[in-house]
Design a binder for these strands. Structure first.
Lengths: 185, 185
DNA sequence: GTCTATATTCCGATAGAC
DNA sequence: GTCTATCGGAATATAGAC
């Protein structure tokens, strides 16, 4: 993959998570790159193609993350996962899943299907971490591992959204609460 | 307020929570009502004016909700609050706060300010319920009331978003987990 | 209060030159 | 691989008649 194509995907990712899928245009990208909007259509014929590529980028990144944290303990894995969202919040973005979920009825079927794949990767991994933590006793929590994983994902993703409205403090309190909730005595 | 104006706000509310703020147009509303887009501009000169009116409608509704549940116990209040989101999920919408948060950087300052007011009303009310429940012993939970309130709001709002991607079952498991978390033995 | 008509701008996308 | 030029359509918004 050449550098221009990669740059387009990265800028699109940034724009989608700052402004939403329906509020960014090929022109916005061509303003950032020194490239005309026709050049972007060469790499991604339709906006849906670009949307799918952005999710593919996130799948790559989460795969890399999962491999990277493999040696860590379960509590450390949870914290590392929450730190991804902390970075999102600090950069004043929201997570890809939330912003595409709120635009769900307007996005192409190909984007929808790819997003389902991405959410399953994240959900399955975190469910596995919860199962392992429960077995080893390194994590303590109420309910089954899958529900706890979903509860963590929903809380932290909405916390990043809430921070856009209420500021960073609201994010931090939710993040700390999530950690406390899986380390109960 | 006349009936046409009310209808416009109700349809806009529906469209915003189904398709997102930037994906609905005055034309979409005029298709549903038997009215031309110029007629909508008469009632709401700009799209931002309409956006503010939609949040005002939600402020009215939550005020009415708060008054209605006043006689109930704290656990019943929490459940009634979660049931609002269950209805949102069943109707395949998302909540107003989440969808406007993900479009935050693209919405007018007047809409942003009004949304802050709305979130504070909801947050203050639920914090009060948590405080009261803690004092009476009708609710049991970890952490301070304000954090718990924020945790409930973020979890349930993202659960409605997640249901768009993963289906209704994921919503129900999160809803039940939230209830269990404030009724721990 | 609602209409027709229109201005202006921007969008996603394509054709064809280089 | 990127360009110029342009198409067809849709968006927000306004002017002025009824």
């Amino acid at each position: 993959m050449n550098s221009t194509k990669e740059s387009i995907v990265n800028i699109a990712d940034d724009l989608i998570r700052r402004r939403g899928y329906n509020a960014f245009s090929y022109n916005d990208i061509s303003k950032v790159l020194a490239v005309k909007n026709a050049a972007i259509h060469y790499h991604f014929p339709t906006k849906s193609d670009l949307g799918v590529a952005v999710i593919d980028l996130h799948i790559q990144k989460i795969d890399h993350f999962i491999k990277g944290v493999a040696p860590l303990s379960e509590p450390e894995k949870v914290e590392a996962f929450l730190n991804i969202y902390e970075q999102i919040q600090i950069n004043k973005k929201v997570c890809l899943v939330g912003t595409l979920a709120t635009d769900w009825d307007t996005i192409d079927d190909k984007i929808q299907q790819k997003l389902i794949v991405f959410v399953n990767i994240v959900g399955d991994w975190l469910t596995g971490v919860m199962e392992e933590g429960l077995k080893k006793g390194s994590l303590t929590f109420n309910g089954d591992p899958q529900t706890r994983a979903m509860l963590i994902i929903t809380s932290i993703m909405a916390a990043a959204q809430m921070a856009k409205i209420m500021g960073p403090a609201s994010f931090q309190s939710v993040k700390n609460a999530i950690i406390n909730e899986v380390n109960r005595q």
